[in-house]
Design a protein around this nucleic acid. Structure first.
Lengths: 118, 118
DNA sequence: TCAACTAGTATACTTTTAGTAACCACTAAG
DNA sequence: CTTAGTGGTTACTAAAAGTATACTAGTTGA
């Protein structure tokens, strides 16, 4: 049984017919739990960061991955993309106010990971 | 303590001294972020649950998935498996004390998902 | 002029995960 | 005897995730 359906922008949405009540946890995880998504959000908390800089911060994620995750985060309203220079193309990604509401969860996750040597 | 420094174009650059051992966030996500793992943990918070019952709670996860995730959680020490009856085979899964330390994060995730209609 | 940087896109490929369905051994009810 | 339930395992396929390399097209610095 599928719990998600693909939309035309290639983002998974929850199929409203299944997994309705119980899985708030699961639904949240589908926003924050993609492979690099939480990390990206975390690395944007101190201010806008440019694309290649972010790739380096994540140390190991390919451009394609960073690109895909950023697009997802943008569609979901957690991140904004702004072109800060046109001639030497320069783009900065910034966390939105909505994105910031998730940082509290991530901070706790970070602390938990640290405390338990995970 | 910041791992970025401001440049004149108001964009953060990596402070080369930090962000070395990357991604406590990512490491934590690899424990809690598998497809059904957080949900399983959440559904065990009120006491031991049997295998098939858990499958039904998750509504949509196949036996194989539930089995795999439970084994991972067991290895990682978040869950224990106990055979409560041998002849009519009956098994119960229970969250460990360590597993409980993660519930706080999941509660926040749940609230966040709920508040933002995700 | 050359190399390296910017932010991506395109293609091809491998690996991992998800999911289906059938099966096992057992029990208990009808 | 049949059906349904217990808790899985195995084999298989489909889909998603991830990697690697090359490419565009412009800029900057040596």
């Amino acid at each position: 049984m599928k719990n998600t359906i693909k939309t035309k922008d290639n983002v998974n949405k929850i199929n409203p017919k299944s997994c309705e009540q119980p899985c708030l946890i699961e639904r949240g995880m589908r926003v924050l739990g993609g492979k690099w998504k939480a990390s990206i959000l975390w690395h944007l908390k101190d201010g806008p960061v440019r694309f290649n800089e972010l790739s380096r911060m994540l140390g190991g994620a390919s451009k394609k991955m960073v690109d895909q995750r950023l697009k997802e985060l943008e569609v979901q309203g957690l991140v904004t993309r702004e072109v800060i220079s046109d001639r030497p193309i320069a783009v900065a990604y910034e966390i939105t106010d909505f994105g910031r509401t998730a940082l509290d969860i991530l901070e706790r996750l970070k602390d938990w990971t640290e405390e338990n040597n995970i």
